[in-house]
Design a protein around this nucleic acid. Sequence first.
DNA 1: CTGACCTTGTTTTTT
DNA 2: ACAAGGTCAG
Length: 844
Amino acid sequence: MSPIDDTDAFEAAENVPLSQRAMAARPTRYLDDLNPAQRQAVETLHGPVLMLAGAGTGKTKALMARIAHLITLGRARSNEILAVTFTNKAAREMKDRLSKTPYDLNDFPIKWLGTFHAICVKLLRRHAELVTLNNVFNSGVRPHSNAHLADSGFTEASAQDDVPHLKSNFTILDTDDQIRLMKQLIVAAGIDEKRWPARQLSGIIDHWKNRAWTPDNVPAAESAAFDGKGVSLYAAYQERLITLNAVDFGDLLLHMVTIFQTHEDVLDQYRRWFRYILVDEYQDTNVAQYLWLRLLAGGHKNICCVGDDDQSIYGWRGAEVGNILRFEKDFPGAQVIRLEQNYRSTPHILAAASGVIAANKDRLGKTLWTEAREGEKVRLIGHWDGEEEARWIGEEAEAMVAGTRGLRPYSLDDMAILVRASHQMRAFEDRFLTIGLPYRVIGGPRFYERMEIRDAMAYFRLAVSPDDDLAFERIVNTPKRGLGDKAQQKIQQMARANGVPLVEGARLLLENGGLTGKGARELGRLLDGIARWHDLARRPASRGAAGDGLLIEDEGSGDLSGAGVSHIELAEQILDESGYTAHWQNDKTPEAPGRLENLKELVKALEEFENLQGFLEHVALIMDNETEEQGAKITIMTLHAAKGLEFPVVFLPGWEDGLFPSQRSMDESGLKGLEEERRLAYVGITRAEEVCTISFAANRRVYGQWQSALPSRFIDELPEAHVEVLTPPGLYGGGYGAAAPVSSGLEQAAARADGYTSPGWQRLQSRAGARPVSQPRESRSMVIDAEAVAAFETGARVFHKKFGYGTVTGIEGDKLDIAFDKAGSKKVVARFVVPADQAGDVRF
DNA sequence: CTGACCTTGTTTTTT
DNA sequence: ACAAGGTCAG
């Protein structure tokens, strides 16, 4: 019957009077080291609370103390608390810390602590059958069939029998599957896939799902999307997903929101179950997540959202800063608690960050303060090009490890390089490889996104459910079985004609002799294999069918009943028998050994799970890998990936207009985009605890083309009193690293320039269209500017380190238009060229 | 059906 | 510059 009737821990909890649940004996040590604001956030348990927590203000601590407090006071049992995060990392970390002192919640595991997606999967597995085609088209304007159902509402009885619906064991598609599916639909609709790529459609649909728009809810304004076919393709896609018994990531939220909106009984149930709701990183919620929360919290309104509007950096993937800005309207009577004492960074760093973010208009406003002592100013340095920047940072990192910067010695583990876009990482990797500086890159292609892992996973999926058509398509000719387009089309036709899954279609095709020769033989072997693996996969008695949906998770007990093969052996067997292992063994490309290594790793990862199903479930949601070798390393990652982290030493390279703020961001989202970029800058600076170094390069290779750029406008927004300008090495004779042996202090080592009076800074400031900086400085710099540019008249022969010789064709501010003999015409900052007769003086 | 060329599009990223 | 994906000849 209805899954709502399931008996489980929640029912029991509901029947116990609150008074009997108090754990009065539990200590409240977790309250001890909270500051007044944190404490208020922890003790205001009733009603809506918005915890506005600036960077490094101890919001996670407050959140965890709040959970502990709810339990200690007996306000809720541990399974009545819903705690939502965005990333698995955050969820994992919170779980870990909650089990330790001072929270000591080992005996009270917070079962519903997880990402939006992980929690929605659990819920959706229980209510999958409520997702029908009607539901997909929830206002009933479905173009064809089932009119009677649209009229009669969404009663489960009618839905279950004659309307295709999702089943509890649905598969979660990864982006790859998604795009392949869409490609099929696009082709089927007779659209030129080249002009209208599946990738783009996937983006559009994702965007709609983030807004919680079902196909019939997509606003008319969007109807032009994807050559006017977007909405109908979306509808077709949703239909196809249901027939495949599959969902994509967006669906997890979308379906749950739809279910809550159309099934009051279900919603009520959960409103009673989840007595207290906590949300981390609220500024990153999209509309669907917001609706989901609002529906769940709608009854008791015991919702506590933690966030920082200044750290909202995911607008481009649907996050709405508006959600946090609007909180008090959404939840009348909400208490807003500001956490403003920062425990992470020095005052200079904090002031620099505050100075930058102050330029944003749409903010709730916070003033961070700290009791930490002064420390270093934020350091600013310009470079000739990206390579030099990488070189400098490499040397600087080494010097800081050696302690020759007049600062305390640091470990490489203390340092991070945070870039705007991942392609910037390349320069650092190249450089660090040549000087042998150990580094780690966070981000990049994830383990489970690698080709070989996906292929292997497709085999596993087939073993678990042979009717997984997408998995079958993926591996039917991998390794090569002589089953090309033609053969695959025949399989498709056969399957479609009989209304059966592809595996079955393939079997029929073989029986009818529709395929001959090598292809037929190989296909036969594959089908035999799938049947055999499927058999083995289901044999080891899996856990009782009843309580599955909710109470899976972590209980490692497992019955190791000897019969059959373990899922680990099975996995190995599958990879061997399918010829997949051999496929890579025979491959002579340099990547092959690594891929085999990854496959081994994959099999090893299976150990933590009881069976293949459990593993597949886990992987669908957790797309990160955890393998980490020993040794101190400097970290390279994007600013986005760095959110929530902190490092004693942070390098922020690439602060050039166009790169950061990103041109694209500004073109696409205008002022909103710029403000988001600025928040990114804020996030970057506030990652630093002790030393923050911002740098920019005048020249950079972009898509193989040399381009010159101007320092980022964000640099002008750094408050001068908290910034120290380091003289660019190579231009003013300042050596670095090895060039300054046994140096004692920054002064000698990096040729400390006299703050803002350094020529580098002056010229920097004085470029055309100077930013709003204070008056005196501006006028002074104009003079210098004139001098700098005066050295180059139109027609002058000049030399540029990268572009070679050229002739000045125009002057604009301190930028010169130069026609280079070899490199073509470019606009270059005067500072980086010398008169041609002084070419020999340019240092490298 | 496979391997060698050519065209194409390049942020940020979680789940 | 470069990787990936598509086209075309064998």
